[in-house]
Write a protein that binds this DNA or RNA. Sequence first.
DNA 1: GTCTATATATCGATAGAC
DNA 2: GTCTATCGATATATAGAC
Lengths: 181, 181
Amino acid sequence: MREDTRTRIQEIALRLFTEQGYEATSLREIAEELGVTKAALYYHFKTKDDIVASLVETRLAELEELLDWLRSRPRTPETRRELIERYAAGLRATRHLGIAGFLERNQTALRGHPTLTKMRERMMELTAEMSPADATPTERVSHALALFALHTGKWLVKEGELTDEEIHQATLKVARRLLEP
Amino acid sequence: MREDTRTRIQEIALRLFTEQGYEATSLREIAEELGVTKAALYYHFKTKDDIVASLVETRLAELEELLDWLRSRPRTPETRRELIERYAAGLRATRHLGIAGFLERNQTALRGHPTLTKMRERMMELTAEMSPADATPTERVSHALALFALHTGKWLVKEGELTDEEIHQATLKVARRLLEP
DNA sequence: GTCTATATATCGATAGAC
DNA sequence: GTCTATCGATATATAGAC
């Protein structure tokens, strides 16, 4: 069963946006890789921003769910431990790690993008609300870094030195340790 | 003693590149903030890329010095501890933290830029060579994250929640801890 | 050193045929 | 759903006067 065109556009766009940057990637390039003309893309997506929005939507939904869950819980070490396990599991779902990487590497270029602004806000709320109210600056930074470590791992080591699975397991261990008092 | 125009261009460019992104910032905007026309910039810098190169040069030189130093030392815990202290001290020097932030947030847009490619390579060598040859994946990720934590701290916490100095001290503590066995 | 004026290219987006 | 053709805006960069 063949993928539909909309999905293929998303895949090509995500790859090019991540490799080259959002602004540096033109719709012409995306269209060429797909084997159609630029105009054809506009049948599937209203604007270039719309492609980004479509990529981020599912991840944003998951993040908001995670935030709701966090708010229903006391700010205890146990909650934090469970949070990073849930966060890590979410990243393993289809495309999410790639999307997180794309967002992190194109923050400035996408400044002002409504869906992106929302994502960033949710992420900040997540890191702010995982620590107790009386946490020290060091604890706050440590907890926040635990989350970020989970999708930054890939860019920390030389390409090819470790497999994706090794990196995933390693960042998870490091993240758990960053939560310890 | 008034700053020369070349330096003012660098300052304005660094700020706008960081705030808005490299591609999203036009030479017209930089010129307008400076109070001159676009064409005047070309007297001071040959191209737009050239402005970036000039920003990165001093930081690249420092990084290469640090790499030479690291290579002259055994890969011991003591060397790693001294490395992050030196790295952190370097970041406090004029503009370097801002430049590091700009580079991190515009990696993709600047892909292919020769000076940037060199920077990224040096950074990867630094993280690769700070760990002993028999280090586990977890140790490698942990050590590399210690370095990155030093210039990522600012973006981990909600703006205004902590002062720059608090963040600096906190990231340094977290970094030291990431080096512990 | 800075200006005006312009060359040249590419971008996102649209109109309308098929 | 995809095409050709094109619009309008903006970009980097240059030429040459002052």
